[in-house]
Structures are given as C-alpha cells and as structure tokens.
Design a protein around this nucleic acid. Structure first.
Lengths: 370, 370
DNA sequence: ATGAAAGCGCTAACAG
DNA sequence: CTGTTAGCGCTTTCAT
C-alpha cells in the first residue's frame, strides 16, 4: 500500500528545502532549482514572474541550499583536500608548510572552494591519517609528499586528481616546484661577486628533493667562476638550526687558511644555526664569514644580522597548486602541469653587500617556465 | 510508463555501490549496509554466512562507502570546521594559531573526524570567508573569534554548535581558555621571589581577552607582596616583537633609579623585542634586567638567552576544544562547557633563576577547573 | 516556459 | 535473521 507523504512545512527542526520554497511560490522544485542556480545550460528556463515569486519565497523561508544533497546529485563537492607531510607541520619552526597553506587558502577561498585538511599527528602515521580521504574531496593537494606514500596509490585507484608541491616531476604528474638549481646558483654567484673564494655549502636533508638541484647550481656557479670546488666544504646538514650549528662548528675547526669565508646554508633556519656557531666562536657575520640562507621566510628578517637569502615564492607555489587543481577539475586545458616558479635573491645584511648595487635589492632568477 | 532500471554492473566509471555488493552477495542492501557499519542499534542483525558473503563481495568489487550519500541519509557528516581569526593566521610569527591547529588536528583524526578549514585571506574578509561555512560541517571551532563576527549569528541561526578558544565565557557559551589570571600572578611572583621590586608589565593588545586577567594577576601579586604598583611601569604594548622593542625602549629611558629591573612581557614575541631593546642599550638579560615571556611557544627556546615564560597549554586547548565539540555532537553530557586550563612557569635563563629551585624546573598554576 | 518523475548511494522503518 | 521500500534534498532528463 502506498503511503502518502506526510510532511507539514512546520515539521520539527528540519531545514527548509527546495520543496518548501516551491510550494510557497506555487511552482515546481525544478523551477526553484533552476532559478536558485542559474544553471541548466545557461538558458533561463524560468519566467520572470515565477522567478520573482521564487526569490521571495526563498527569502521569506530563509532557504539555504543543502550542499550535501547537491553533491550527491551532481557528483561535485567543491572541496579540495590538503595533505601535510608530517605530524608537526603546523608547529614546525620552519614556516614553509604554513606559508604554503596560506597561499592555498587564498586561492581556495577566492575560487569559492573549501579545504579539508589531512595530516599525520603525533601518534598517528600519515598513511593512517590519509585513510580519512574520501569522495568528499574532488582533488588533493600534497605538500612534499613522502616518495613511497600510500596516498599516491589511493588517489590513483580512486581516481582522485592531485597536484603536489615540492615533488620530483615524472611523466604525467602534476607538480609545482621552484627553480632550485638557479637558487643555488645565484646564492653562490652573489658570494663570488663579493669576492669570496672559499665558500661552504650546508646541504639540506637527503630525502628532500630540493637539496640536489641547489647543490648542483652551487657547484656550477663555482666552476664557471673558475673556483675549485672543495668537497670538504660541501657538507651534509639539514633544515634545522641545530644541524646548521653543528655543521658550521665543524667547518670552523679548520685552519684559518682553509676555513670558508662564506657559507650558503640549506635554508634560513640552518643559516640561523650557522650564525650562532660563528658568533659563539667569537667571529662576526658578515665581517669574518658571510652567510646566505634559503627560502626567505619571515624568519630571515629576525636573525641578527638579517639574512641575505634566496627568495622562494612559497605562498605563490601554494596558490599555483590550488589554481592548477581547480582548473583541472573544471576541465580547463592548456595548463602547464609542471610549473617551476622563479626564485630571486633578497639581500639583507648577512653578506655585507651594499643592497643598492642590485636592482630593488633583488637579483632575479633568469630561468622561469612561467 | 514505468521504465526498468538500466544498470549493468560494468557501467562506465560509476563507483561500485552498496547495491552492486548486495547483488553479488545475493542479498539485500539492508544487509550490506548493516554489515558494513555494524550499526542498527548495536544488534547484529545479519547472519554469519551472509556477512561473510558480503565482505567477500565488497572486497572483490573494491567497494568503498560513499560518505556523501551516507551524510544525506543520516544527517551527520563527521566533519568539523575550524575558523581562524585573521588572514595571516598561518604565517604569523606567533605560532599560537598553529599550535592550536596542531592540537585540534590530533584530536580530530584520533576521533576519525575530518576538518574543514576556514579563514580570512589577504584580500578576503573573515565574514566573507565564513560564507563558505555550510551544513557539511556539524560543528565549528573558533579561535580567538572577533567579538562582533557575523559567524556567531550564522551559527545560531543555522543551529551549528561551536566552541571557541580564547573567548570571554558567557552564559551558555562553550569556550576553552587557560588561566590567564594565574599566569600573570606566577610571572610576577617569580620575579618577586628573585628580589625584583620595580617590575614592568608590557600589556597585550587591548582587543585580546587574555590581556586583562594577566594584568590583574600581575597587579595582585605585587600588592600581596607589599610592592607598590607603579602605573608608569604597566604599559600598553602588544603581541609583536616590534611593539615589545618600542615599549621597552621607552622604559629604558627612565633614570637608573626608576627603571624596571624586570619586565613581564605580553608574550614570547614581545619578550624578544624587550631583550633586543635591552641588549642594544648595552645592558644584559638577565643581569641588568630580567625578562619573562608568556605562551612558551618554541620561540621561547630560541631567544638569547632562552626565555623564562609562562607555559600555556596551547595544543591541549585545541585538543580540548575539539573533544568538547565532538562530545557535544555525539550527545554526551557532563561536559564542562567552559574549562580553564592550568598554566605553569617554564624556567630558562632570562631571569637568572636557578631552575633547580623549582620542581622539575616548573612552577605550576594552582588554579584549575579541570 | 514549466512540471513530473527518476535518480545520486545510503539508511532506517517496517513487514515478514 | 532478512528483504522491501520510503525517504534524505537536489539535479536533470523528458514530455508537456
């Protein structure tokens, strides 16, 4: 036996639906849906009069669309996922992840999308956290994804498009990177220009993709300037000030004749460590040893002296990644799937350079795929 | 005319549904739903044999549940929203928001919930960003919500439960705070114990709710110790190192006899500014002037000297807020809606105290509603 | 220009 | 224990 639909408008706490609006406006749900969306192929299929009644009814009832129902019907959610790489991504001393998020957020809200956040937490591994990723998101943004992460398989199996930030580009992948090779180059070139010959490089963590090209750029710059590359001056360090401090301490143990007169650190944090080591050895930055950092996070303005550092457009990278993903989801084409954003050198006081020698205090990267 | 449902299992790219599983397992969708959820009142309503066939069929088809459909049917989404208060919440030098997020994230993934992120961005106001908040979230977490924000009205109108972190408790509100009054007290008491009499306090921004109780605690501690409260030593400053620097500079212009011998800064960042001002005036911390910070973020370990600071359990506050919200959503009761988390004093080197005088280097807050 | 009705995939009465 | 069926609120043919 067929039951009649029992549904008074003044039901308990049920939200007002499209149907209520239709009833009050004396029209069909179709009309309401079409009106309140402007959809259905761009054609205005609802008459002016009806439209007005619908708007009024909607306003009167305080109608708000239910995005869940909409998603179920359309298969779209307007939600992106953001996967952060490690447990302390938020509270890391390195503002990198935070700046990336900032850029992503900007683009996401700009495009009226939403952002769902995923990350490992202390006590819960990334892959386990990634289990939460589900069809509520249309695409995923990955920041420095661990190479072997289960996320990749998951995305592939479920057909979730993703773009990753700081990840080695491979065929068919969507990645956004910055020009690390040039970054290494301009750091070295700056020091060379200032007359340095014995330049050390504190290399970043081996697992991080940026370390290798930066080192390559650094080496190439030396070679081109006819400076011998002393292997002992290129040391494994890391993206943490303690590591920078340790590495630098070791470097300072060298004799005055073989000791570097300049240090190109893995990043700003690492540079902070270098500065500390130099000062606590009773030497001065930049008078005795010049230091250049990498990233140009706000941290670089707080060191003493403020840091000359390679500017990486971190927020822009986040923004770009979000833009690419959304464009892809919306079927746009002609999108460069593997942009490499240009870097530049921000000159402050840790190298003793007179900033006015350089246009706007900045020396730009020459290479850019943009 | 009734059309038959045309739906071959090997349809285009449609995901496999509960129905496909039911068909393959030779049972009903009800059984599948019940099995794959363990739900329906806790009673196992499906026989062992059927269950097994269902599991097998699901595995074979690679079935994954569609949370959107589930949400539509149940009215629950298992998604929380997190609203950050200002555009640069991520990239703020103050790690406060980040630590809160970290704590929230921990609890959220622990409870198998998801987190949707909202915030103002450069160029888009908070209230406009808050427009994105919709029925996909079951509840909202607010960090330091602006008093007059449209979010409150929106939540109320839509019946979205929320709990806010660092917000003045009012009747019926759900807020988590820490014991700022005691924080101000123990900072002052520590300095008094060390023999200081002329103690300055750099007060935080007027708009932030924590400033007032901290100042009150500070004043009370002085009074109780029989120390006259010199109004000129209690100055408006803010939660930024530049402000701390400025305020301290002014303080240092006082004659040696009226100049403070100790400064209780608004927070760690502000303390950094104070330290800089003191050093660039040729004085030493702590020998000439002692400094105590507030928050005990990682920043406090990086100042030189490392900062003695009031420890605020920031991550725990985030965790607590998430736990409260989830508990509330799941109908638990007996939850304290306005917990005040205890603070303590972390003793490092900016006051010259011998940390061994205090249990574990920490002097705890005596007040706690927990 | 308009409306009826068939879903989207899942849950939860309800009736066996 | 099991299956049928009526929704959840919205979109979208399709026929009028």
């Amino acid at each position: 036996m067929k039951r009649f639909i029992i549904r008074s408008s003044n039901h308990n706490d049920m939200a007002v639906t499209i149907r209520d609006v239709a009833k009050l406006a004396g029209t069909s749900v179709t009309a309401v849906s079409a009106t309140l969306n402007g959809s259905t192929g761009g054609t205005i299929r609802v008459g002016q009069a009806t439209r007005e009644r619908i708007y009024e009814a909607a306003a009167q009832l305080g109608y708000v669309s239910n995005p869940i129902a909409k998603s179920l019907a359309t298969g779209k959610t307007k939600v992106l996922g953001l996967m952060l790489p490690y447990a302390n991504a938020f509270v890391d001393q390195n503002p990198f992840c935070n700046q990336v998020m900032s850029g992503i957020m900007r683009e996401v809200v700009h495009q009226h999308y939403n952002l769902m956040l995923y990350t490992a937490t202390s006590g819960i591994q990334l892959d386990r956290a990634a289990m939460l990723v589900d069809s509520r998101i249309e695409g995923l943004l990955l920041v420095m994804p661990p190479e072997d992460s289960a996320i990749f398989l998951k995305c592939k199996k479920r057909g979730i498009p993703y773009v990753s930030i700081l990840d080695t580009p491979t065929v068919g992948s969507w990645t956004v990177n910055s020009d690390d090779y040039t970054g290494g180059r301009i750091a070295a070139e700056h020091l060379i220009t200032l007359g340095h010959r014995r330049i050390a490089h504190l290399v970043g963590s081996p697992g991080v993709v940026t370390s290798v090209p930066r080192e390559r750029g650094f080496r190439d710059a030396l070679k081109e300037a006819g400076i011998e590359v002393v292997e002992d001056l290129i040391v494994q360090s890391g993206f943490d000030w303690r590591l920078g401090l340790e590495s630098t301490r070791l470097l300072l143990e060298r004799s005055a004749r073989t000791r570097p007169t300049a240090i190109f650190a893995a990043n700003d944090l690492c540079a902070e460590g270098a500065i500390r080591a130099i000062r606590s050895a009773g030497m001065s930055v930049p008078d005795d040893i010049a230091v250049v950092g990498y990233d140009d996070t706000w941290y670089a303005t707080l060191t003493q002296p403020p840091l000359t550092t390679v500017h990486m457009p971190i927020e822009e990278m986040g923004e770009m990644a979000a833009r690419m993903l959304i464009a892809r989801l919306e079927g746009q084409n002609g999108i460069d799937p593997q942009p490499v954003l240009p870097v530049s050198l921000t000159i402050r006081h840790s190298c003793g350079a007179d900033a006015s020698h350089f246009v706007g205090g900045t020396m730009s990267s020459h290479v850019s795929s943009q």
